[in-house]
């Protein structure tokens, strides 16, 4: 079990080993399908993204509404494979840490190896569990996307497992 504090320092991701359990603390950004498309469009047009990618990670998630007394509703990971067409571009531009569920494409593995990125698995379907580990939520951009908006979370003891490490090693493959 290793701890990863976000924003991470140079070299932190290189210390994550495939198969290792990771506990994340700190600032974690959130974006899924539409955010990925928009971020890549912005990069293609040469515009500044809405947050500095340096030291940050992106969690593939779209929360349910917060019930009274909670800062956020259920907040588990969504299927990462839908982000595969966009992730290599974002990793190459510095958004090197990804958190979601399910397998990734060859291109994402290559991007992790080339740019020293990492992909972590969060427990699929565990929306209530992850909700309890989120201390605050702020909308960074695209509020019109509703549950798909770009968010910034403050998380504590957020559990994950390293699926692709910065050497391009993939969990479960020989």
């Amino acid at each position: 079990m290793v701890r990863l504090h976000l924003p991470y320092d140079e070299g932190d991701l290189d210390r994550l080993e495939v198969g290792e359990e990771v506990l994340i603390d700190g600032v974690l950004h959130v974006g899924r399908d539409q955010v990925h498309r928009r971020l890549c469009d912005m990069i293609a047009r040469g515009e500044e993204p809405p947050f500095d990618f340096t030291g940050h990670g992106i969690y593939y998630m779209g929360p349910s509404p917060a019930p009274q007394g909670h800062v956020i509703g259920a907040a588990g990971p969504t299927t990462s494979a839908r982000m595969d067409p966009y992730s290599p571009t974002l990793v190459a531009h510095g958004l090197r840490l990804m958190v979601g569920k399910g397998p990734r494409s060859r291109e994402v593995v290559d991007a992790c190896r080339i740019h020293h990125g990492a992909y972590l698995y969060a427990y699929g379907g565990c929306g209530a569990l992850y909700s309890s580990l989120i201390r605050s939520v702020r909308t960074v951009a695209f509020p019109e996307l509703g549950p798909e908006a770009l968010l910034e979370l403050h998380v504590v003891d957020f559990p994950a497992i390293c699926m692709i490490d910065s050497r391009g090693r993939v969990y479960g493959s020989k």
Binding site: S64, H70, G73, A74, G125, C126, G127, A128, L129, S132
Partner: peptide, 21 residues
């Protein structure tokens, strides 16, 4: 184990089991 913990948390709170309802 995480799934079992999640089931227990959702049933004793106002949170859905999963954000994809």
């Amino acid at each position: 184990s995480a799934i079992v913990r999640n089931i227990d948390m959702a049933s004793s709170s106002t949170l859905p089991l999963c954000q994809d309802c």
